[in-house]
């Protein structure tokens, strides 16, 4: 048994080496297929991240009176945190608002000068409320409107609704398009893989018949093909993974510029999900390979 496996491995390696062009083309096609799949996944991840970034920026601000005591602000904050659909309530104190203002206008000396001339901090503290589910934004606004507390100075519920609708529409389109493109890509990839294998096996059809002729069992005929397929797939996944990683490194600066201030790193994402990518792609391609080998051996077994 062990000697059989070793021999099957030997035949497989011999075959790869002696049909070196066919082997290179097979691996190349696998690499392209995996690369496309990786690219597609990344586009989805990036577009989802883009949407999340925008959604995340949707918030409601409650501006409070400048002299509102800290304790009451914190009490209000606690009350609002208790409202359903509130993800977080960020308390921006007077001081923080000032610092924020200063950094935002750090390139504008006139404004900073005007600010410095004032004795006291003119800015008001605020509570920034972020919803859990942006789709139920209306209900949240209604709840917030119901709160009557003397420390509230104004409520800035700009017309986020229109923007939200737009985002939702974009999200839906991106998802639909992504789904369609994914299906198309996967279909093409499967087709390309299947055809590559057919060509690889077709070139071996006379050999399959000869192996049978000299009394090789079905298992012994199939094993070298399966080992070769697994090797091709493994090499394909490793090369496409490496190339893709380098590609992401090139892409990351542009993404960083795009996702300004938002913590999004596609490379980290890729790194933390790499094992899954790797295993899934390997398993899927290996399954196709094995099925194709099994079918082909049956088909070309006659002398």
């Amino acid at each position: 048994m062990i000697i059989s496996i070793l021999r099957a491995a030997k035949f497989s390696l011999q075959d790869i080496a002696r049909n070196v062009w066919l082997s290179i083309v097979t691996v190349l096609i696998l690499v392209l297929a995996f690369f496309s799949v990786n690219l597609l996944l990344s586009v989805q991840v990036i577009s989802q991240a883009a949407i999340d970034t925008v959604r995340d920026k949707i918030d409601v601000s409650l501006y409070l009176k400048t002299d509102a005591p800290e304790s009451e602000i914190l009490a209000l904050r606690a009350a609002i945190s208790g409202i359903e659909n509130v993800r977080e309530v960020i308390y921006v104190s007077k001081q923080e608002a000032l610092e924020d203002f200063q950094t935002r206008h750090k390139n504008n000396p006139d404004i900073l000068e005007a600010l410095r001339e004032l004795d006291s901090n003119p800015l008001s503290p605020s509570l920034i409320i972020r919803p859990n589910d942006v789709n139920r934004y209306d209900g949240l606004i209604a709840e917030l409107n119901r709160i009557s507390n003397p420390i509230i100075e104004s409520r800035n519920f700009d017309d986020h609704k229109l923007m939200l609708e737009k985002i939702n529409m974009i999200t839906e389109r991106v998802n639909q398009a992504g789904f369609a493109v994914s299906l198309l890509f996967i279909f093409i990839t499967l087709l390309v893989l299947y055809n590559t294998l057919r060509v690889a096996i077709y070139t071996h059809r006379s050999e399959i018949a000869i192996m049978r002729l000299v009394g090789a069992s079905d298992w012994f005929i199939r094993a070298p093909f399966i080992i070769s397929s697994l090797l091709y797939t493994l090499i394909g996944v490793v090369i496409s993974g490496t190339v893709f990683y380098l590609f992401l490194n090139l892409l990351q600066p542009y993404l960083e510029a795009f996702f300004l201030n938002y913590d999004f790193n596609i490379i980290h994402y890729f790194q933390s999900n790499f094992a899954q990518f790797f295993i899934l792609e390997f398993a899927a391609a290996a399954a196709i390979n094995i099925i194709a080998s099994l079918v082909a051996v049956r088909k070309y077994s006659n002398i």
Binding site: I3, S4, Q14, R18, S206, M211, V214, A216
Partner: peptide, 24 residues
């Protein structure tokens, strides 16, 4: 003839024994 084109004559003959699990 039905020889395997990518194997030498020796390997072609040895193959018939290898598939049957004969020792090296």
């Amino acid at each position: 003839f039905k020889l395997l084109p990518k194997k030498t004559l020796y390997e072609n003959v040895a193959f018939a024994l290898e598939v049957a699990g004969k020792s090296n």
